[in-house]
Design a protein around this nucleic acid. Structure first.
Length: 735
DNA sequence: AGCACGCCGACT
DNA sequence: GTCGGCGTGCTC
């Protein structure tokens, strides 16, 4: 028995790893979970290293309570990657490891036994001679079968061999001759289903050919492919090639719920080795998928952002689909970018030799385009939509136009013509509910949210006023709560109101609304989409849910009710997001044999970026937007880190961030500028006041070395206990 | 984060 | 006289 000192990362928001004593023959390896005394309680931590001497005085050093795993849950490469991530995002290692583990394992529960439920002979059972069991032939048969199969069999196999035998097994168990166990999964076969993919187009072939030679090491590809150009087929070919070599594949998608067909396509084409990892899974299912990925039983993991933190045996390829999607950024706790970490993970794969990473999108982020321009990513393009023409975009100037439910005469007529031709029309508005505000015309009262600096949205079907930021609800009043007048009016448009207007204008035309309210029940999105795909002349109304990934071949006209919100957002990325959304919605149109048209209503038809987008498409927009970013010295031409603070008392966040700003000035790093503190764009949200301090630098290294020195001082700052604060490295939403 | 300790207001 | 407010300190 040997005394060893372990470094343990505990899942608490503290930047330190803690030393513990353990007395065993062989100390638990890094990556093993241990239960440790922590403060007054007991916590689950992960061994991250061994030390020669403890960093604290002997009296303080406590002993490990239980070693929870026989083998490490994180191998050395995985652990080193997560350490890198903790370091880059300046986030406590314990919490990063916690984010990487399925909940049950994070809480210190025993890992689920893997493999099929089955039965094995006990020592007593093994010494029984079946020949002496003539009075119990069924029991003898079971014992004989188990003996023949090295003492253990899956329940399914036993049933197959001997028919139903549960009572027999129960009897044997009572005698202590057999016991339940887990039978190892059959070793993962390399057998993939026969290739049944379609013939590749010339562009697809060239893209695959460009990437194929890179599978031996790190290489990053930006695969820019318009909607419907067949990016998925390219992913499938690459994945297959990597799987055949015995390596595994990680596929990241924005939201699995919105892309069930992508998941199905991977499963159908690559078979049983596919595991799906997303938040909709039950804890146990999640843990099983996680363990299968770790052990190599699942060789292709398709998952949402947290999958990038998970285990992968012998990683050979990383794919990030719709890489521009903001949902790859975790917006609380450990605020990482799954897309950025995917690139890092690929670079560090296979003991540092690396593997390729493919970032795919019809509308790449400006960050990725800039990386491509700088030669860090290889830029590949798929221009053509097999068998279809790109939709045309046009602006509709609605200044001084009479509007009916927010829609101009031109848009309504275009919809009418589309329906008359037997086609479908899609009306897009990124605002659910009936109307964004209820107003009193008599005294000017507005449906303010009591807890946020925002209006409560009117939901007419439920008769509720509902804040979309904090979830606060109340019954919509009939009379003005302030002056009592019967003069309340819904102002502005939401998808519900749009639906009502269109129903009145086009009676008898089937109308489908797709937004979060209409698809709350599980499976209802798919059902609505199936109705949309099956029908003839019909109208679809929806929010951005409708913009993502669904094939709607009968839609030939898309109307965008209001694009202006995206032009002047508080966030400098507002225009980029608006353009991405517009192009994604446009991608719904004209996928059959008919050309699609997109009509975009605006009060700013001369807005330069909007004009560029409509005339030159996304590439032209991106070039112009990048030029603006360069001129303004904004990302990707600068690097940011954002301190956020919130508190119930209005002045606390600002006071705290003043302190942080003062500390940054003391550290005298000329390359880093500090902006603020400023009130957050919505200063009051859910009853808390919020403020920001933005740090910005031309290069990453000065920013990160500043943060490294700054953070201990920030944690020690007097006001840090009065506020909830966090650091967001590479923030994407400054909200 | 969670929990203890510690010093000042309105209550069984 | 106590119960309890949240400020401050610590967690190997």
């Amino acid at each position: 028995v040997k005394r060893s000192i372990l470094e343990v990362a505990v899942d608490v928001p503290l930047p330190t790893v803690y030393d513990y004593l353990v007395e065993t023959e062989e100390p638990p390896a890094p990556g093993v979970r241990v239960a440790v005394p922590f403060g007054n309680g007991r916590r689950c931590g992960v061994v991250v290293g061994h030390r020669v001497a403890a960093a604290v005085a002997g009296a303080k050093l406590r002993g490990v309570e239980t070693i929870l795993d026989e083998r490490p849950l994180f191998d050395a490469e995985h652990l080193a990657f997560l350490r890198w991530a903790a370091d880059y995002y300046h986030h406590p290692l314990g919490e990063v490891l916690g984010a990487a583990l399925p909940v049950r394992l994070r809480r210190g529960e025993a890992a689920l036994p893997l493999g099929e439920a089955g039965w094995r002979l006990t020592a007593a059972g093994a010494s029984v001679d079946p020949a002496h069991q003539r009075r119990a032939p069924r029991q003898a048969a079971v014992l004989a079968q188990l003996r023949e199969h090295l003492g253990a069999l899956g329940h399914g196999t036993l049933t197959e061999l001997l028919g139903a035998c549960t009572p027999t097994l129960r009897a044997l168990r009572a005698k202590g001759w057999v016991e339940p166990c887990r039978v190892k999964d059959p070793p993962p076969g390399v057998a993939l289903p026969e290739e049944a993919g379609p013939e590749l187009t010339g562009e697809q072939r060239r893209a695959v050919a460009a990437m194929m030679p890179a599978v031996a090491g790190f290489a990053a590809f930006l695969l820019e492919g318009v909607t419907g150009s067949g990016k998925t087929e390219v992913y499938l070919r690459l994945a297959r090639a990597v799987l055949v070599q015995g390596r595994s594949v990680l596929v990241l998608v924005p939201e699995i719920a919105l892309t069930p067909q992508l998941v199905r396509r991977f499963t159908r084409r690559l078979g049983d080795c596919v595991a799906v990892l997303h938040s909709g899974l039950a804890d146990r299912e999640r843990e099983v998928a996680w363990q299968k990925a770790r052990l190599g039983a699942a060789r292709l993991v398709i998952g949402t952002r947290s999958a990038v933190l998970g285990p992968l045996a012998n990683l050979g390829l990383v794919i990030v689909d719709e890489e521009h999607d903001p949902s790859f950024k975790q917006q609380d706790g450990f605020r990482y970018s799954a897309r950025d970490l995917a690139v890092v993970r690929a670079r560090r794969a296979r003991g540092g030799r690396g593997c390729p990473v493919v970032l795919g999108s019809a509308t790449p982020s400006l960050e990725s385009l800039h990386n491509a321009g700088a030669g860090r990513f290889v830029h590949l393009q798929l221009h053509r939509r097999p068998g279809a023409v790109m939709p045309t975009l046009a602006l509709l100037d609605i200044r001084d136009q009479p509007l009916e439910g927010g829609m101009s005469r031109v848009l309504l007529q275009a919809l009418e013509q589309t329906l008359a031709a037997g086609d479908q029309g899609l009306v897009f508005l990124n605002r659910r509910g009936f109307a964004p505000v209820l107003a009193c015309y008599d005294c000017g009262w507005l449906s303010d949210c009591p807890r946020c600096d925002a209006r409560q949205t009117l939901h007419a079907t439920s008769g509720l006023l509902w804040c979309h930021h904090c979830g606060a609800q109340r019954r919509a009043p009939v009379r003005c709560p302030q002056c009592g007048a019967h003069d309340l009016h819904p102002l502005g448009q939401g998808t519900q109101r749009l639906e009502e207007t269109l129903a009145g204008r086009f009676p008898g035309v089937p109308l489908i609304r797709i937004d979060r309210d209409a698809t709350r029940r599980k499976g209802s999105l798919e059902r609505l989409l199936n109705v949309a795909r099956a029908g003839n002349a019909a109208l679809l109304v929806g929010t951005q849910m409708l913009a993502k990934g669904h094939h709607l071949p009968r839609v030939t006209l898309v109307g965008v009710v209001d694009v202006d919100g995206g032009l002047f957002g508080a966030d400098f990325r507002a225009a980029e997001r608006m353009a991405q959304l517009l192009i994604q919605v446009a991608g719904r149109a004209g996928r059959g044999d008919a050309t699609g048209r997109v009509l975009i209503q605006t009060r700013y038809p001369d807005h330069p970026l909007l004009r560029t987008l409509v005339q030159g498409g996304y590439p032209a927009f991106a070039a112009a937007a990048l030029a603006e970013r360069a001129a303004a010295q904004l990302p990707p031409f600068a690097f940011q880190a954002l301190f956020r603070a919130e508190a119930t008392k209005p002045d606390d966040p600002r006071a705290f961030l003043e302190g942080v700003a003062a500390l940054t000035i003391e550290l005298r790093v000329p390359e880093v500028e500090a902006w603020g503190p400023v009130p957050a764009p919505m200063e009051r949200k859910a009853g808390r006041y919020r403020a920001h301090l933005l740090l910005q630098s031309r290069g990453r290294p000065p920013l990160h070395s500043l943060l490294r020195r700054l953070l201990p001082a920030v944690r020690a700052l007097a006001g840090s206990r009065r506020v909830r604060w966090s650091l967001d490295v590479d923030p994407v939403e400054l909200l």
